[in-house]
Amino acid sequence: MGVNDGIRDNTNYSTIPEGARPTLEKNDAFFTKKRFGFIFNEEKKTKEVYKEITKVQDLLSPGNSACLGCHAELALRTTLRILGPNTILAIPPGCMGGIGAVGFNGGAGAKIPVFFPLLDNTAAMLAGIKRKYIREGRGDINVVAFAGDGGTADAGFQSLSGAAERGENIIYICYDNEAYMNTGVQRSGTTPKWSWTQTTPVGEQTHGKSQKGKDMPMIMAQHNIPYVATANPSYMHDYIAKLKKAMKVKNGMSYIHLYSGCPTGWKFPTEKTIEVGKLAVETNLYPLWEYEDGKFRLTYEVLKRRPISEYTESMQKYSHLTEQNLAELQQNVDANYKRFKKLCKI
């Protein structure tokens, strides 16, 4: 069965589970106003932000092979719009490289200078580029990494940590989809406890990943660099404000850790990405914060914390969690949040 043999392939290759309905359908049992009321509160801010960013050119080349509902691709487009043309972009091996953001077959993936660093030398290569341009009096160029969690927290960590310690004036954005998604969902250093991945399967002897993930943004804050923030493409106005702050930093590295929902790897309907991202924040699992001048600050206060089960039930990677697991997870989330609030008071 192929393109030319005249036989139609009726197989459904969609990643959308059968029965899933579009978000805006009024009788959607999942997407209710009660459950997602906060979206409407955010709507105004989001609209304003999109008004702003759609006025400027999309600097990603048209056509790429990102999965439907990719949070990171959405973030990358917005990121480039905010950074503007005076930018040099590094995309190490990972999903965004795989979708062709650097380029493919002789074509360029972006309308700005873009390149593939190695998986593990992104920060060092960018440091070299920035140093040379500073010497030439062109230190205003944004020198930016858009790297996955593997290229950041695992293989790329030494290079990143070294560059942070040396005060290299680069912007490092990590899109964290919590596993090696480009190679087909294998565990990474940021994969959370109990997550299913291809290499942390759920079986007779195993229950997903048995270890906790690294807290990368906190690790970067402990490097005492000028600016660190967590962000989430479901809260674009919050991310954009942080990116603009990161661009202003001239005395060292700025680091943004982007929560990045992955319908393919986490197994949720492709049209639910924004909602899943919102749930991550509303459950206090991924609080939105920034670290500036040695101070932590929450940039988005959750008024009423939702139970973590709403988040874990929104995707299949946690479908094996027991009541006991959920209770422990809830305890961890609440304890982490409480500790973070205390940190903000220092």
Binding site: N121, A124, G128, K130, A163
Partner: peptide, 15 residues
């Protein structure tokens, strides 16, 4: 590893 990587970046900027 980073020593040579910094230089690679440098060359990409014309150093």
């Amino acid at each position: 590893h980073s020593a040579l990587s910094v230089l690679q970046g440098g060359v990409l900027a014309g150093a």
